[in-house]
Simulated assay, not measured.
Amino acid sequence: MAFMRTAILALRDRLDRAGIILSGLCAVHCILGVLLVGILGLGGEVLLAPEIHRIGLGLALVVGLVSLGFGVARHGKLAPLVIGGAGLGLMGLALAVGHGPAETVLTIIGVSLVAYAHIRNLHRGG
């Protein structure tokens, strides 16, 4: 039983770290998209492809809900799950508003909240 508990904790920590990395990559993607497409007119067909955004949101949902859910089970604090859920909601809303400044702002705020939630989760919900 102790082995199983240790394995679950290790998985949760890895997923939280993956969530932080994915959030950072998403933020970089958004900023580069705005700069390269908006200012230089480069890469729009790749950087603004809806599939990239849907896949990114899908990954964020899976990683976020699993790792933050494990965190609630581990430390009993809902705050990281609520914060992460709000961030994921903003990321979903960003998909709905379409390309433009609103999408960028919503996504950056959303991924920041998700990353913050994963960091809090790593620190035992503190």
Rank of each mutant, 00 (worst) to 15 (best):
I109F: 15
G19W: 00
A94M: 10
V63M: 00
G44V: 04
V34K: 12
V105R: 10
L81Q: 01
E51N: 06
G43C: 10
L90I: 08
G76W: 09
V28K: 05
G33P: 06
G100L: 15
L42H: 13
G69A: 08
A79M: 08
E45N: 12
C30Q: 11
L25R: 03
L42I: 13
A96G: 06
L65S: 11
E51A: 14
S23L: 06
L48H: 15
S23I: 04
G38D: 06
G85K: 03
S67F: 11
L40G: 07
V105E: 07
V97S: 14
S23T: 05
G64Q: 00
K77I: 05
I39F: 13
A27L: 07
F70R: 07
L78S: 08
L32N: 04
L68H: 02
G89C: 05
E103I: 05
A60Y: 02
G56E: 01
L35P: 06
G69H: 10
L48M: 12
T104M: 09
G69I: 04
G56A: 09
F70M: 15
L35N: 10
H29C: 02
A86W: 01
L95C: 14
V82H: 09
G92I: 09
E51Q: 10
P101F: 15
I31R: 05
L78A: 13
H53D: 02
G92V: 07
A86H: 01
S67G: 11
L47Y: 13
V105Q: 08
L47A: 06
A102M: 15
G58S: 09
R74D: 06
A96K: 11
V66Y: 08
E45Y: 12
G85V: 03
L32Q: 04
A60W: 01
V72A: 04
L78H: 07
M91R: 00
H53A: 06
V34Q: 10
S67P: 12
R54V: 04
L61E: 03
V66I: 12
G89V: 03
G76H: 12
I20Y: 03
V28C: 04
H75N: 10
I52P: 06
G84Y: 02
V63L: 01
G44R: 12
H53N: 04
G84H: 03
L106I: 07
I108R: 05
